[in-house]
Amino acid sequence: MPAMTKKSIALIVLIIGAMVIPFIIQNEYWLHILTLSFIWSIAVYGLNILAGYTGYLSLAHAGFFAIGAYALGLLTVKAGLNYWVALILACIITSGIGLLIGLVALRTREHFFAIYTLCVGYVIYLVIDKWDSLTGGVRGLIGIPAPSNIGPISFQSAISQYYLILFFLLATVVVMYRIVHSLTGRTFIAIRNSEELAQTIGISTMKNKLTVFVLSTFFAGLAGALYASFIRFIGPDIGYTTIIFDLLTYLLVGGIGTLAGPVVGTILIVSVSQSLQFLQDYRMLIFGPMLTLIIIFYPRGIVGMVSEWKMKWFNKKKKAPAETWKSTYSDSEDVREDKVKEG
């Protein structure tokens, strides 16, 4: 299998590239931006496994990100816990709340699920914003510590933080890769394709949906916690609906339902919008239509586009098959009608 080895070589090159980047770009500002986009990528991976692979668009994802961030912030600042203990607890708390919400939210489907989670997200934001005595309300939470030392390793410098976050990102990607390429991942994909069919081949859809929902909130929480200790200050804004729209943009541009999509989309969009600082307030003038156009013309984003090109090229090489491609989601009603006519 030469394609496989080619792929893994490319992967190793990429990882080494990410490792040496701090030595190439000596600019602290860009290192900061890159680290930040790694954090967002982790959150987007969480969204991807749910929306991309299981077909459930959760608009409460930013809320869970905020829960993770606030959990870490409160546990370190107010409770004075050790950073690493707080980090683990933050992930557990977020997943726990995710489990409770998932139990109810997943009884709904499609549009109802999207609207339900949108409302849940909004309630999370409002609670953070209004629960002044706990969260500090609009003033936010300041003085969140950076990760504490592990033995001789300290995480005070920008470079060490970069490596720490890179480590978490790589771990996330490995976990995602293993899930997607496993029976469990196939189960999720089967649910996305057709929940009805999935059930008739013996899949407990509720159990699997709950698993993936909790998993997605876990990564949202992890990303939120890392964000809190990286930026050292958090406000209720990080749970506002605009954040979920940002995350969606990253995911869509990179490629929803693809493994490389989240990191590609996030790094691309975050760095582009940083280069166009003057656009900051108006970035949605570009991102909004981009989101819409991508979903119409390239529903699987940049990564999907590239793999389609590759496939076409490959097909041409071994002589194109005559069979025309039917869209994945062709209108089943129409198809059925044709069949009846033929019958």
Binding site: A51, G55, L57, E110, H111, A114, F245, L248, L252, D281, Y282, R283, M284, L285, F287, G288, P289, M290, L291, T292, L293, I295, I296, P299, S327, Y329, S330, D331
Partner: peptide, 29 residues
């Protein structure tokens, strides 16, 4: 937007609608 997405899975309509929302708001601003 919505007519071209007629035969797409429902998740696409929602995302497209969100895209329009973001655009119009930024435009108003």
């Amino acid at each position: 937007v919505f007519n071209p997405l007629k035969n797409s899975p429902p998740i696409h309509d929602k995302i497209a609608a969100i895209g329009i929302l973001l655009f119009l708001e930024a435009l108003a601003q």
